[in-house]
Write a protein that binds this DNA or RNA. Structure first.
Lengths: 248, 248
DNA sequence: CGCGTTTTTGCGTGTTTATGCAATAAAATA
DNA sequence: TATTTTATTGCATAAACACGCAAAAACGCG
């Protein structure tokens, strides 16, 4: 492999993941640490990345990333970390859209190998950064509000999928009313997603607990996992605990 | 073997594999290293390839070096502006992916009303910013490299679409060889896209002119519009003009 | 044809580049 | 603080390179 190609490879990794570990590159490229260090140094000289102890970081990552604008980002990261624990190698996972799911994707471990179906283009793009994840984007009408595909075509395609786990964000959850939503189309969509997965995990920041909206997606019993940023023993969750769903 | 033949051989290797090693060429062509180096140097002088220590790389292989700063952005905006002129209210348009298409989308006039099918999630997200554009994302396997959906499912769905216009980016275009590409899946995809649109516009920055890659997508006659950043009367385009396709 | 010129090619020599190794220093981690 | 991990530095080696030279081939032209 030519040096230039190695540099390109490194830059791709950086642009993709915003970071690289020296040790990873040594393995991936099959060269000595020294070579990688020299490569990184040269890329630094060209002003293409930041070098840090253990690897390198993307330059753009620090300056221009609007991660901060995500509402309640810390909570969503906490939720994401818990959700990651549910993912095992070889799984077939179906995900919805939304910023919580997006944070979850960013927290997946590098080497993970799995198949992901998703109705969210942004989630697909983020998932594509993992080499061993197969990404299938479910196509259809694209919703300007929720930034996911929806409509009959999506539901038809969902009906052909059999997933081990479905991860979905939520608009509202209530101990008695279960999962609810405001829009008919999204409601239908969620029903279809639930139907095609063995188990479903609901990612839900605490402020959406105990709310019931107009349309019912499913009773609380249809959900396998409820993931919030709260401690498992937090009192807000007590009424959900009684319902025998796993709380993370 | 004549020098010219050797040069052609080298260029073929480059277009095929995006790279060549000096040592390989020495073996394959049975000449001294010096000769190969001289050959490569001459090809560099003709602006046909990129020379690096150990061999040479294709010029069109800009890799995916800088994701953050779109390569040749100005040219792509110029192309985008021209492409916008083709879009009329009420049209059904099919688009591929790539940065050129993305720039085009950003340049669309606000009020425009149309239906867009696309295989690119990023394009879909961008299109969603227009209130009167209906966006249909065609789903399927998601390609990590080209960031578009591909595969049998995509092609099946494409076959059910009838679009007025197809806009696609290009890897290479050549007056005799037509549209060509390196990857089988992308090749198939482009064929399917062409087949479902009445007319096709190819968005192509000038440096991709006169290049022929391994796999043929279609002859030049199947294309309706060729859009580059160059002036219509630029001499680089003269050989395309003869082919009676519209040049913008 | 003859003869000078240009082109092409390979070889020798010295230089530069790429890469790994080893010893040491610095940083992170426990 | 002790220990492990990661960095730095200098050095060695092999590969790749540049340059000049010379032989051979191709060319041009009277």
């Amino acid at each position: 492999m030519l040096k230039k190609e190695r540099h390109d490879f490194i830059m791709r990794q950086i642009n993709l993941h915003n970071r690289v570990l020296t040790s990873d590159l040594v393995q991936l490229l099959n060269v000595s640490e020294d070579t990688i260090r020299r490569d990184l140094q040269e890329l630094v000289d060209e002003n293409l990345l930041y070098k840090v102890h253990g690897g390198a970081l993307s330059k753009s990552y620090h300056s221009s990333f609007d991660d901060s604008t995500v509402y309640a980002r810390d909570s969503k990261i906490a939720i994401g970390k818990k959700a990651v624990r549910l993912i095992k190698d070889g799984m077939v996972v179906l995900t919805g859209g939304g910023t919580t799911i997006l944070e979850f994707v960013k927290l997946l471990p590098q080497g993970i190998s799995a198949t992901f179906f998703t109705i969210s283009p942004l989630v697909a793009v983020e998932l594509a950064k993992y080499n061993n994840i197969e990404v299938i984007l479910i196509g259809g009408l694209f919703s300007k509000n929720s930034q996911v595909t929806y409509g009959g075509q999506v539901i038809t395609q969902l009906s052909e999928i059999k997933a081990d786990l479905c991860l979905m964000g939520t608009s509202a959850i209530h101990p008695e009313e279960g999962l609810t939503d405001t829009y008919w189309e999204i409601n239908q969509l969620k029903k279809a997603m639930l139907a095609c997965a063995k188990r479903t995990a609901v990612l839900c920041i605490s402020e959406k607990l105990d709310i019931a909206l107009r349309l019912r997606v499913c009773p609380i019993e249809s959900i396998s996992y409820l993931i919030t940023e709260l401690d498992v023993d937090h009192e807000s969750l007590s009424r959900y605990k009684e319902k025998e769903l796993n709380i993370l």
